[in-house]
Amino acid sequence: MRFSTLINITKEDILEALQDVKDPEIPTISVVDLGIITGVDVNEDNFVKVTMTPTFSGCPALKIMENMVKERIELLNPAGVEVTTNFDTPWSTNMISPKGIEGLKKHGLAPPEKHNGLVQIEILEKVKCPHCGSRNTTLKTPFGPTLCRSMHYCNECLNAFEQFKPVD
């Protein structure tokens, strides 16, 4: 027997609620806009199942994000929540939404460029500077403060910047 819900929760309700769950390392982008929520299912008993996929296999924030997602959905009063992670829909940077791209920019990061399913590593060489827009930039190192960022230098405005690096 359950008393928790009178109104059925919809998939849209959940996606809207998950807008509140931000990437713990980039607070200007939600897990939905980042593209790591790969499945949402609500059954007739209001039991919610969410599937996530990691950006990088070694991402240390994954467990934290799973818990954040679970806790946020529990506020909607479902009969239960199950959050699982798998690789059925592998994440790529093409899955970041337009709003997510704006979020990355707001955080001062150069967004990843769209790719056709296969990242040519050369596109890291001339990344557009998020400060002045110039492509006269140099890749300093493909590894940054988190697994998903690379570090660059702009030869025009002489600023260092980070890019959310493209992944296929």
């Binding site: 990691p54 296999s57 300093k140 190192t141 590894f143 940054g144 403060p145």
Partner: peptide, 20 residues
């Protein structure tokens, strides 16, 4: 420092990959 970060990041990737 960049190499410090590179080796550490590569380590993190590989250990995460092994885990799965």
């Amino acid at each position: 420092v960049e190499e410090d970060i590179a080796f550490s990041s590569i380590a993190q990737d590989k250990i995460g990959q092994a885990q799965h």
